[in-house]
């Protein structure tokens, strides 16, 4: 130690001043982080390409399919669960129809029904949910309690009850799935709506004397749209699973029409007829799984971008 008794024990006793220009302005530091750009992760890119692939099949599949959905590729050689062979690249099903063609027809039905049902769920759920958030405590209370009653039933049970009551057809399936999932969308839309309603800028607009129309369209909707749209993918997954499960139980799309869920069910016999091909069960199951998992990969990217807040809301 080379300090002498006269020197301070610490340099803290000296008055240190960093060099600075006397006229320095000390601008306030910007406190918001730079805007992030949305970018797909590698997994997200795989997701997008798989979803795009299935959407193309859903749109054009019925026109590109080698056979009609109920045509027999080999009328002269009838045998169930045939292994893949030229002319039927995925083999044949329990009544010797071409799996590949049925898969392509099924794509447009499964995906089409699901998309329309999800859109319906959004229209009903968002309208009522935002409506409840804006309309004040009484309307909100009534709507929310009714919604809670429906939410306290497992979705598949609601589906079963409806099908038991009014039977099964494609429009009924769309409406059923749409209304069943409208309850979930309602809850989300209401939660987002209420969250925005308590923001000061909404109160400021009300205090200004703005009417409800302005509040909903200019103050609430622009802020609710993004979280709602980014939730669409997740909802679509659940609707696809719901529709496929109903079809799998034999209560959805009715034979002889092809649909991925019902294809799994009608070909379950392949697991018992040893020696037959198992592709008739595996192919539609894999088709659904790839589609829903691929959507999920995209959803993950979106929710990571929006701060992962979405999953916390549901």
């Amino acid at each position: 130690m080379n300090s002498t008794p006269h020197q301070p024990a610490s340099y803290m006793d000296e008055h240190f001043v960093a060099p600075a220009a006397e006229d320095e302005l000390f601008e306030e530091l910007q406190d918001s982080p730079p805007k992030r750009k949305f970018r797909l992760s590698p997994a997200g890119k795989i997701g997008v390409s798989i979803v795009a692939f299935w959407l193309l099949i859903a749109l054009f599949g019925p026109f590109l399919a080698p056979y009609g959905e109920n045509d027999l590729p080999f009328p002269d050689d009838y045998s169930e669960f045939q292994a893949p062979r030229p002319g039927a690249w995925l083999g044949t099903d329990f009544s010797d129809r071409d799996i590949l063609s049925r898969l392509m027809f099924g794509a447009s039905r499964t995906i089409g029904i699901s998309i329309f049902a999800t859109l319906l769920a959004y229209m009903v759920g968002v309208a009522l949910g935002i409506g409840a958030a804006v309309s004040g405590p009484r309307v909100d209370m009534v709507l929310s309690r009714i919604n809670d009653a429906f939410l306290s039933l497992p979705t598949i049970m609601l589906g079963l009850v409806v099908v038991a009551a009014v039977g099964s057809s494609i429009p009924i399936l769309i409406v059923t799935a749409g209304l069943v999932y409208a309850t979930v969308v309602y809850r989300l839309a209401r939660a987002i709506g209420v969250e925005i309603m308590v923001m000061d800028f909404v109160e400021a607009a009300r205090l200004r004397g703005e009417n409800t129309f302005w509040l909903v369209w200019r103050e609430i909707w622009p802020n609710a749209a993004m979280p709602l749209i980014s939730d669409f993918g997740l909802r679509l997954i659940y609707v696809i699973l719901f529709i496929s499960s109903l079809s799998f139980l034999g209560l959805g799309v009715q034979p002889p029409r092809a649909d991925w869920g019902s294809m799994v069910r009608e070909n379950l016999g392949a697991f018992q007829s040893y020696g037959g091909s198992v592709i008739p069960v595996v192919a539609p199951a894999v088709a659904i799984a790839t589609l829903t998992i691929a959507i999920n990969l995209i959803v993950d990217d979106i929710s990571a971008f929006s701060g992962g807040k979405l999953s916390g809301r549901i």
């Binding site: 997954i237 699973l241 496929s244 199951a285 799984a289 959507i295 999920n296």
Partner: peptide
Amino acid sequence: TVSLVAAPEFFTATLLVLIFVF
């Protein structure tokens, strides 16, 4: 888990049957 959550129940069943039975 993410994949299993997103996949339908009968896909999981199919998978298990393929692995164990076949």
